[in-house]
Nucleic acid binder design. Structure first.
Lengths: 225, 225
DNA sequence: ACCTGAACACCGTTCAAGT
DNA sequence: ACCTGAACACCGTTCAAGT
């Protein structure tokens, strides 16, 4: 049932768990947090489903909050890696497009966790509003910077914000209803691309002026297929 | 401090509150729910801030959940009214634009409550997932229908979804940082308009073909100023 | 190393009782 | 009509103790 792959996974900063109880706790937690919400899920429920006592959970995690944050770290770690990658690249249209694609794939891959996080934003915001609570906002601002450049105007930044958050919103909104995820991926990506193309540092005209035939019509409808 | 207007407000379906204790509870609740989150806010805190006991709150509301839902009803009532209005109108480009404007103004007017609801989505999803929990999704689907028409393709529906949710996301994301809300309103609205123009039932060409000068350039950048 | 049993303060909710 | 005081089951957390 909860058998790991035959080759042991590369050891991260977490101590390697042999019995896998820690991972089983995470799996049950992400399921219940998504179904019922973080605060409505009690540690007793998690413990009962695993056949242990409440107190046993405290051997593996410092607190209930710590379980949630172990999940958060996994997800935002991917986003942070993407942002770091983007910051190391030159600011070209190709890189900006690649950021959209990679960000969408992170959202798609972490669909379950992302949905859970999105529903439980309040639980992420601790009383000490120093680091937490602004998790989404911080990342979004970094992504906006990558998509526009530092000195962009407000309308340009709004376009980038709607493009990036539109990827996740669009995916989450239609994912449960669609029977063709591939088509949805293309549609969502198409909208985001449309909002970001022509963004970035003010470029000189690339094509010699003169033959601007049918420039609007081709962009208006989603021609991703 | 908490003095009502001199002219008594029109009586709704709620029993008219003379002392205004009920309204005071709502005001304190919306504040604390936004700051700390629904689940992290205890009834004791609300009661203490009002100088009453916990049990006193149960005279005005059936439960803690009931306080939250009284706030929800106020907000979604406005959205439902907009949707009903939209459904009674003809499906023209003007009506679709008016829907965007009115929806944005609802978001702006209910900024505080909207932010609170968005952060506490998990609290809204009861265990009985019949009516609740899908509050946002239901409304969004109705708005998408109004902006596109029933037989729209997936890319068209995604465009409308990103446009509508972009209004609220864009507003929430930049509102705290901007010092010119009017400029932000224009920028956000501009992006949404760009995503919805050309939507709706397949229209015949409105202008006689022939003089399509510079159609794309003016639309590409936000020319709201 | 991994888990239990019992205790702690706090939570939402109820209800008889007061004015 | 409006509110209190005391009780209820449940929650997250701790900790000495077991293997």
């Amino acid at each position: 049932m909860s058998e790991a792959a035959s080759v042991p996974p590369a050891e991260g900063q977490e101590p390697l768990e042999r019995g896998g109880t820690r991972a089983r706790i995470q799996a049950v937690a992400v399921e219940l947090f998504t179904e019922q919400g973080y605060d409505k899920t009690s540690l007793r429920e998690i413990a009962e489903r695993l056949g242990v006592t409440k107190a046993a959970l405290y051997y593996h995690f410092k607190s209930k909050d710590d379980i949630l944050h172990s999940l958060v770290d996994d997800y935002f770690g991917q986003v942070d890696a993407l942002i770091a990658w983007g910051q190391s690249q030159r600011r070209t249209a190709e890189v900006r497009d690649e950021i959209l694609v990679r960000y969408l794939d992170i959202v798609i891959g972490g669909h379950q966790v992302y949905k859970m996080l999105h529903q439980n934003q309040a639980a992420l915001a601790g009383k000490h509003v120093k680091e937490r609570g602004q998790l989404f906002r911080e990342r979004m601002n970094s992504i906006i910077d990558l998509l526009t450049g530092p000195g962009a105007s407000l309308p340009e930044r709004v376009r980038a914000a709607v493009a990036a958050s539109g990827l996740s919103i669009g995916w989450m909104l239609f994912h449960d209803d669609t029977q063709d995820p591939c088509e949805l991926r293309s549609a969502v990506l198409g909208v985001a691309r449309e909002l970001t193309e022509g963004a970035g540092p003010p470029a000189v005209a690339l094509r010699p002026a003169g033959q601007d035939q049918e420039p609007a019509a081709a962009r208006t409808r989603g021609s991703t297929r």
